[in-house]
Amino acid sequence: MSAAIEVAGVSKTFRIPHEQRVFLKEYFLHPFQRMTYERNEALKDVSFSVESGEFFGIIGPNGSGKSTLLRILAGIYVPDRGIVHVSGLLSPFIELGVGFNPDLNARDNIRINGTLAGLTRSQLDERFDEILAFSELERFVDQKLKNYSSGMLVRLAYSLAIQIPFDVLLLDEVLAVGDEAFQEKCFATFDRFKEEGKTVVFVSHGLALMERFCDRVLLLRNGIVEGLGTPAEVIDLYRERMPVET
């Protein structure tokens, strides 16, 4: 098997200002006061690889750098150091349900987000009914999204996400919201991705989910890779080191 993703020595530090200055007034009132920052080392020398066709999980406590890593893989954030190499068509779906326009209906949001994610007009036309059917939101297609519940938004977002062609899919906490019946539908798509040999990188706090679907799991803590191996090994390690959080 060849590597679908290679990450070598990736580091990322955020400089978080102690006070936000977005107005010129703040610069004029304190012309000689230097901005001071908190350094948040989100990722420190992270290295790993994901094989083609692998279902790869990333776990860790809140603030461990999981979402930052996913965004770096997606090309949304730029790493300070290191190399990221991705082979194949990449489709990132991060913070599902966020970023929709609440003043537009589901129909227009599907068109805009589908187009931004790379679907052509004909692909959108072909898949439009399928997206609505999977989300079970046909009756609400012409309602503005501000009237949707958070569960409905996630259903719509996930239904759209799985219609985007990809070789490598990045998913962040996709099932944090949503009822049990819809979660089972999502699990069925995971099975299909596995059968089709798709590479999926999946961030979640759901350890049972990791055990059920992932071939390997990476444990991140304070931006450092603490473990990488089979789900059982890494989850045991996670529970051992962070018993309170699990």
Binding site: G75, V78, D80, I83, V84, V86, S91, G118
Partner: peptide, 15 residues
């Protein structure tokens, strides 16, 4: 290992 950030080979439908 490179000390400069690089992102290689990533193919997207968004270009």
């Amino acid at each position: 290992m490179s000390t400069t950030p690089e992102t290689l080979g990533r193919t997207r439908a968004t270009t």
